[in-house]
C-alpha cells in the first residue's frame, strides 16, 4: 500500500475527517509514514507577525492548530512528521507533493474559508488538477 502519504491540513474540522481517512490508509502498511503539512498563507503573514509576540510564539500558535491531528495519529500509532510550509496554499502543497514524490495526497474538500471557495475556487480543486500523485479528497 502507500508508504509516503501527504496529509494537507488547515486545522478545520474537515482536516480531522481527512486525518481519519489518512489513518485508515496508513494502517494498511506498517512502514507507511504520514507527513502532515499546513500552509501558513502569505496573505496572513503580516497579521500573524503583528499579533504574536515572537516567532517562537507564532510557531506555537500554528502548531496548536495541528495538535488534535497529531493526537489522533498518535492514538492510532501512525508514524508521522509535521511540516509547516509558507506560501499560497494550493500551489505550495502541489509543489511540495511533487518535489518530494509523495505517493498519495489526502486533504479535505473544504477548509476554513468555506465562503471564499465559492468565489475564488477551492484549494483542493487546484491541487487535484496539478498534483502528480493520486489525490484523496475527503468530504
Amino acid at each position: 500500500m502507500y508508504e509516503k502519504i501527504l496529509l494537507a491540513v488547515d486545522g478545520s474540522h474537515h482536516s480531522i475527517r481527512a486525518t481519519e481517512e489518512a489513518i485508515k490508509v496508513s494502517s494498511l502498511n506498517s512502514s507507511s509514514v504520514v507527513t502532515v503539512v499546513m500552509v501558513a498563507d502569505y496573505e496572513n503573514a503580516k497579521s500573524d507577525v503583528l499579533h504574536s509576540g515572537s516567532s517562537v510564539e507564532l510557531d506555537m500558535k500554528r502548531r496548536k492548530k495541528i495538535m488534535p491531528i497529531e493526537e489522533l495519529l498518535r492514538k492510532h500509532n501512525i508514524k508521522y512528521r509535521v511540516e509547516i510550509l509558507h506560501g499560497v496554499p494550493g500551489p505550495t502543497i502541489v509543489e511540495y507533493a511533487n518535489k518530494n514524490k509523495f505517493e498519495l495526497l489526502i486533504m479535505g474538500s473544504r477548509g476554513l474559508n468555506g465562503l471564499q471557495e465559492m468565489v475564488l475556487g477551492s484549494v483542493s480543486h487546484k491541487v487535484v488538477k496539478r498534483a502528480n500523485c493520486p489525490v484523496l479528497i475527503v468530504k
Partner: peptide
Amino acid sequence: LTATIVDDMTG
C-alpha cells in the same frame, strides 16, 4: 517589523 514578516514568509 517588515524583516520579521519576510523572515516568517521565507522561513
